[in-house]
Design a binder for these strands. Structure first.
Lengths: 231, 231
DNA sequence: AGGCATTCGTGCACGCGTTCACAAAGTCCG
DNA sequence: CGGACTTTGTGAACGCGTGCACGAATGCCT
């Protein structure tokens, strides 16, 4: 009996939705809800019910026909699949406006991603304490990554410094990067990069707004960009 | 001669990439680069060259065979298509940690999205000035949206207040929302919502990290999640 | 115990997006 | 001026993700 299956590959689109399901399920658990149907979960997540079932089927055949899914069990399974059974310390590069906000954002530590350190290249920023974490110099990056076993780095620098930050992170041994700088990072193979670009998001919204006006008042209908439940 | 074509619909995936091209092209223009090939742009954007050409072909047949695209002209065309020929004022709901960082983030105003106002429901926060903008009470939302002609709202509240913020925004007449709260917003039809969820992004990275370890040291290869050029 | 209602799991078809491959169109040089 | 070279624009094939529809399994009620 194979205790830990090698686990089949999960489609990227599904991986992106699992965290959403997880958050909703934890909420439900806090409200003493014991079980939930794919329909119920779909409604709360703003997606199709069949999609929910297919997504969850990648985890295994948990779920009871005629009843639904046991919330607590599903939380455990998703946690395990996403690798959230233990903490993933992160290091933040850049102690500017954004870096400080991220370090102060409670959502990190509370959700299993404690801030192992904040570093900056500007000596004048080093030493200041933000959100209980002392800012250290970027030269200490290697040491932080190694002693705290950091796998995930966050780039919160100005655009001009982002590539250098990424280079230092990968050199220090980080294998996943969350990039907030409006720059396309070049990284070695095998390094996982995800980007969050506020300007891009706004410009996408701008496109649909502009379109809405230009075309006149005709049916806008499916201008929802993936998410969005109707009231 | 139709001055302004009705413009065929552009695939969502392409719309999401246009802002990236735009940023790169503006950079190139600043460095006095006059023209660029689809190959060159593709490299800088970290995508396939054919994809660049197909994306740009949705704008029209700009581009000269044997030469490439004229940078300045392409910048103009993308700007026009994305509706960036004029500013889009945005209103930020929530003057907490994140709201302040967003208001202070220069990337907004400089990229055509000036902050028309920051509002909060907490009277103790009202009146304080962040990044040159005075925080006003959320009851002033309607007035701000109407007098400043705001179409885009940013939700930067705690999760528990996010739905209320979205309701108020749509009621005030906002038709696009950028949501930073880890909540699935329910909005009326025709309202465009995009979400930015830090915890979700980290959890996705966590999945691939966990997988990397579990499977052992075998080829990780295509674990790049869309972006990522090799060094 | 049997039948009915409910809900899961999934095969299948459809549509969108990506990529290849190549003709068309232009430049450059001898 | 002609031929070689470069690069665009796009038809076509492929692959992935979505959503429908339905069989299978389970619980509940009589």
């Amino acid at each position: 009996m194979p205790v830990e299956r090698p686990r089949r590959r999960i489609p990227e689109a599904t991986v992106a939705r699992l965290p959403v399901y997880l958050r909703i399920l934890i909420e439900q658990a806090n409200e003493e809800v014991e079980s939930i149907s794919s329909d119920g979960l779909a409604e709360l997540a703003g997606v199709n019910a069949a999609k929910v079932r297919k997504d969850l089927s990648y985890l295994g055949s948990y779920g009871t026909r005629g009843v639904g899914y046991e919330v607590a069990f599903l939380v455990y399974q998703i946690r395990r699949e996403l690798g959230l059974t233990h903490d993933w310390p992160v290091v933040i590069v850049g102690a500017g406006n954004l870096g400080q906000a991220l370090a102060g954002y409670g959502g990190f530590g509370q959700r299993g991603f404690p801030v192992a350190g904040v570093v900056d290249i500007d000596p004048s920023k080093v030493g200041s304490v933000i959100a209980g974490v002392r800012v250290r110099h970027i030269d200490d990056l290697d040491q932080i990554v190694q002693t705290r076993h950091v796998n995930i780095g966050v780039v919160a620098t100005p655009p001009s410094a982002a590539q250098d930050a990424a280079d230092r992170l990968t050199r220090a041994g980080v294998t996943s990067i969350l990039n907030f700088a409006p720059v396309v990072l070049a990284v070695p193979n095998g390094i996982n990069v995800r980007k969050v670009d506020l300007a891009v998001e706004l410009q996408i919204l701008s496109y649909y707004e502009q379109r809405r006006m230009g075309v006149g008042l005709q049916a806008i209908g499916s201008s929802d960009s993936g998410r969005g439940a109707s009231a």
